[in-house]
Amino acid sequence: MSHMALDRSRPVVAHHSLEAMTLPTDESLIARSRAGDASAIALLVERHADTVYRIAFRLVGQKAQAEDIAQDVLARMLTYREGWLSKTSFFVWLRRAVYNRTIDVYRKARPWQHSDLDTAADTADDGLTPDAALSANQTQARVAAAMQELPLRQRMAVTLCFYEQMSLAEAGDVLKVSVGAVESLLHRAKATLKEKLLDLGQ
């Protein structure tokens, strides 16, 4: 997991890009959405739906549950307010909302049983022989299962830093912990995952 190495110089992608600067900001879209601008609402959803769903899926490992969480979080986007009391950017707020919503869901119900068919992406078997597809699906299912065995906070740290390529500082903002704490979470997660998935590389 080289991506989880402590590379603080990694550039932040997507929300700080030059392209993003020419597009309307999330805050302006939210303001327009509140005023009833349907095109702004559609753009806001289009911009964030995939990210929200993706993070939710990494956290819960199940498509249907991830979609439910994504629906809830997307529906609450207009409640975001930035003021002198809250300096949280929408970028951080949205990811934290997914995390918090997942915690809520876990509190209400026991963690869901894994379904191999659900946790393994359907896209993995494109162009593969049946044996290779089966193997790929099994690998995915094992990774998904190993991720689900991590404590939620470690899972979120791995999701943000490894899968979403966020910096340690950004992940710390989302989780409301220091950079050192994120490093610690990643270190422990890596150790557990290695232990669970050691035989996959052999």
Binding site: V45, E46, Q71, A124
Partner: peptide, 29 residues
């Protein structure tokens, strides 16, 4: 072992969300 773990982790892909996800979210808002 790091590389093996890296490869294994990357193999876990996210299935595409249902097509109605965005539409329903937009309609809800």
């Amino acid at each position: 072992s790091d590389a093996a773990l890296d490869t294994a982790m990357k193999s876990w892909q996210v299935p595409a969300p249902s097509p109605w996800l965005q539409t329903r979210a937009t309609q809800n808002i």
